[in-house]
Design a protein around this nucleic acid. Sequence first.
DNA 1: GCATTGACAATGG
DNA 2: CCCATTGCCAATG
Length: 110
Amino acid sequence: MNTNFYEQVYEIVRLIPKGRVTSYGAIAKSLGAAKSSRMVGHAMSYAGTAHPVVPAHRVVNSSGLLTGKFHFSPPELMEELLAKEGVKVKDDKVLNFRQIFWNPMEEITE
DNA sequence: GCATTGACAATGG
DNA sequence: CCCATTGCCAATG
């Protein structure tokens, strides 16, 4: 595939530490495509059928909302995984989102 | 190749 | 804080 963009997205998502979450825009920015935040979401769709396990449940929208939880095998899986990681989810949104927010740029530092 | 849709983001009211 | 609009880019029909 070598669809660089998607590969980059998967790479970053895989780098997300346990108990942390990030937003599509942050990932897009890290890749230098802040305008293509939607592409990150598309990449996530492929994540389930592409690479070995991409913790897409750690990726949420800019509001910390679990927008794509419905895309998981069981929609509840997203909250389950997040809960296991120590992330509290309420009303399909991450609590203390700003505190557990993980900035990909800090790990990329190109 | 055009039109529609989409795991989004940012801005304005 | 919630709703409406715009931009952006790729996938799909």
